[in-house]
């Protein structure tokens, strides 16, 4: 399950709307220790295309160096589909290189209602996961805390 703050969801959707009809892309970095998405990093789509996105290679290197220095990981890798549903395409799956990331897709094909879904993509296998939008991480419980203590 992806637990994510509302302002971060709104930032991804706003980015996707802004770049429509081209695909928008970016990362939400978070501390390696918590795996919580915290720092919104919109990236330039070097392909500037309605059907393809790619982080520019220099930007990619700077981003990873920055995350390394901050002890962060790419918790969320997001991009938009502007004419199709928010489901990973075959191209998305073949490129997916972060087995621990939540791959978030935002579809902007409907001008009013966006669609936002999240997936794990590991070894070419796509698994959709629920998205829980929270106002703050302070009151949300995830992982082991979800399970009441036995007995």
């Amino acid at each position: 399950m992806l637990v994510i703050r509302r302002d971060l969801v709104e930032a991804m959707v706003a980015h996707a709307r802004r770049d429509h009809p081209d695909e928008a892309c970016g990362v939400i970095a978070g501390p390696a220790a918590t795996g919580r998405p915290e720092r919104f990093v919109p990236m330039l789509n070097a392909a500037r295309s309605p059907t393809f996105y790619e982080f520019e290679s220099g930007d990619l290197l700077r981003l990873y160096r920055e995350m390394d220095a901050n002890d962060e990981v790419p918790v969320v890798v997001y991009h938009s589909h502007t004419a199709t549903e928010a489901y990973p395409s075959r191209t998305d799956v073949s490129y997916a290189g972060e087995p621990e990331a939540h791959y978030v897709l935002v579809s902007t094909r409907d001008p009013e209602e966006h669609e936002l879904r999240s997936y794990r993509i590991v070894d070419g296998e796509v698994t959709e996961e629920p998205v829980q939008v929270v106002e703050s991480y302070m009151f949300s419980h995830t992982g082991a805390d979800d399970v009441p203590d036995a007995g």
Binding site: E23, M43, F52, F55, L60, L61, V77, A83, T91
Partner: peptide
């Protein structure tokens, strides 16, 4: 030498 997965994809 730094190796990084390309971050890319697309709807087609």
């Amino acid at each position: 030498v730094t190796i990084l997965p390309a971050v890319a994809g697309g709807s087609r």
